[in-house]
Amino acid sequence: MKRADLLNGAGLLATLVAIVFAVSAVTGSAGSPRQSASAPSQYDADSSPQSAITDATGHPVDIGERRRVVAASTTAADILVTIYERDRLVGVPSASASHRTRAHLVAGLPTFEALSDLERIISLQPDLVVTNGHAAERDIARLRERGIDVFDLGPMAGAEAWLGDVTELARLLDVEERAVAVVDEFNAAMRPRDQTNMRALYIGVYGQSLYGGATGTSYHDVLIAAGLHDAAADAGYSDWPEYNAEEVLTMQPDLVVTADGMGRALCAHPGLHLLAACQTQRVIELPSELLHDPGIGMPDAARALRNRLQTHNTD
């Protein structure tokens, strides 16, 4: 018994140690060619700080033109078709190709499901892959091991973050001047006008779950751009909170913005029939493709919301 304990314990310990060694050995050997491959650029980066940009994962990526770019997120695809040559785009996510209003911009380009579809992406032979936040680090690491530049824009967090993405990507591709016009146009479209005193709240309704979008989200920015106050931001919420009915009732918004088809479910949610917005029918449904667009679609969403507000007010 005692001996069996000792033997098995030692075996277990040895296994654990072996795993640690194996992992460090493998990652070490995988890391070295990557480092040697990017060594010149790092050297350049040291001598001239302008020659590389650090992405959201903390990884430096060389500035310079690219011939074969894969957009691994819809946001990246939206930015790339706006600021770069379309014929240098060699792959987009299938979600971009099936987008209701912007599919034509990427029509005919090869598609894939997600960044995790590594073989498909590698077979497109890109020299740059642009992605957005939610990508798994191990997928990015596999691509970098193959010498492919991967630039991670980081999470999408509203208008400011999106403008930062545009500027950064333009710098990376050495076409900074093209970003200026895009940024100006976006800012002009998102500038609040017809300012009202109405306190509005974005709510998405899924079953019994209520989801919001407050400071640092496109939902917040769209409400502001439409001349509304964001009741969630005023109440101290940020990012994408999950609400319960009590919290929504406490905020008492004058108006609720939701996606098409959800208004009825919202006011049928236990307790929410008491919401002023439900009683005065100030629940505005926007097409979900506009409402949920965290990037280039925000001005369109704001415009649609303004229009709906006007028809509501003239009613």
Partner: peptide
């Protein structure tokens, strides 16, 4: 997961909860 909020809702249902229940 294609719709981030829907993904949250499905996961939340899977993990259980009684918030917002009605008659």
């Amino acid at each position: 997961q294609d719709t981030w909020e829907l993904g949250r809702a499905v996961l939340s249902f899977t993990l259980g909860g009684v918030s917002g229940r009605g008659p």
